Every structure is written in structure tokens, then in C-alpha cells.
Simulated scan of single mutants.
Amino acid sequence: MPVPHIRHARLDDDEALGRLDRATWSPLHSVQPRPEPPYGPFFTERSVPRDHLVAELAGTVVGYLTLGCPTPLASNAHVRQIQGLAVAEEARGAGVGRVLLRAAREEARRQGARRLTLRVLGHNTPARRLYESEGFAVEGVLPEEFFVGGAYVDDVFMGMFL
């Protein structure tokens, strides 16, 4: 499979990203209930196109990564946080997630960040392996922070210096 093209999201990506987000929903990574109709817009006041990197293969959106600030505090402005990552089922295993993570690292640097962090559910072994292979390290764990799919699940904080 070819290397995906990574770009910033545009307003006209709203529908495609919303579909991808719903199609990739899983209790493996989400603490929210499964989305049900009527579906709202993907972009919101708090999550605008500039906060998203989009992966395309042959002009089709196959993944996205949301990059934001963990807090609105000036004292925390040197940190960026990955706040969402999704890859279409048909594109999994083709390096799309890895390319998005590398693009996020570069975008965070471009924005002047010194650190990049994320949170991942403890039982999401594939994501944790990917993050570790890209240089993220576990920096903290909130044991049994969420109750998902009938089980208590850890919230794992991971980070890296840029």
C-alpha cells in the first residue's frame, strides 16, 4: 500500500471525518457510548479543522489525528496532546497510524511544543505498542479509571520530549 498523504483538515472534511469516526468507534479506545443518530457535526467550537491532521490514500480519507493543548493555561503552552487517532479498517496495518503520529510530532514542533502527550486505555494493546514504537513512554497510570464494556480499565498517560 502506498504511503498516505497527510494534510490539515478542511471544513469540507466534516462529513468524511464524521463517518470515519463512527465507523472506527470501539470500546477498545472510547469511553463514550457508541454514537447514535442523529449525528452532529465532526467539527465543533472546541475542535476545529486546524486541530486535525488527515491521512488520504488515493484521495480518500483513511485516518485522522487530533492535536490540541491539554489545558488552556499559559504555563502549559509548551505541551501538545494527541486527543484522537482513527484509521479506517481497510487501511489498518499499512502504516497510516505511524505516519499520522510522525506528522503530529512535526506539527507539535512547528507550533513550538517541547512535549507531546496522549492518553490511552490500558487494554488497548495495539495502540500502546504503536505509541511505544514511536518513542512514547508510560508516564503514569490511573488504575481502573473507567468502566468500559463491563470491566474496569486503566487510563494510561504516555509522553515524549520533542
Rank of each mutant, 00 (worst) to 15 (best):
H52Q: 11
L57I: 14
L28R: 05
Q81F: 05
H78R: 08
P27Y: 07
G95K: 01
L65I: 01
P70W: 15
P70A: 14
V61Q: 04
E15S: 12
V31W: 03
V48H: 00
V61Y: 02
R128E: 11
Q81C: 12
T125D: 15
G93A: 08
P37Q: 07
H29R: 12
R80M: 10
E106H: 05
A91H: 08
A74H: 07
R109V: 15
T60I: 12
Q111S: 11
R80L: 11
A23K: 11
T125W: 13
I82S: 13
D14M: 09
R80W: 05
A16V: 09
Q111L: 13
P49N: 07
R114G: 13
V99D: 00
P41Y: 01
L57C: 08
S133L: 10
R34L: 03
L65V: 02
A108I: 08
E139V: 04
G135K: 04
R119V: 13
S26E: 08
T125V: 15
R110P: 08
P72W: 14
H123L: 07
T60L: 08
G112S: 04
A137H: 06
V79K: 04
R109P: 11
V48Q: 06
L116K: 06
P70D: 12
Y131T: 10
S30D: 15
Q32T: 13
N124M: 15
T66M: 06
Y39Q: 03
E45M: 15
V138E: 10
G97I: 01
L100Y: 04
G18P: 04
A58M: 09
F43R: 05
G93E: 01
L85M: 10
E107K: 02
T71K: 07
A137T: 12
L28W: 12
R115C: 01
P126K: 04
V79A: 02
T44I: 02
W25E: 10
L85P: 00
H78M: 03
E106D: 14
F136P: 04
S26P: 14
G122S: 08
D14T: 08
R92H: 06
E90C: 05
L101P: 09
V138Y: 02
L67G: 04
L116W: 11
R34K: 11
P27L: 07
S133E: 10
G95F: 00
T125R: 14
E56H: 09
V96F: 00
R50C: 08
P37A: 14
Q111H: 05
G63D: 02
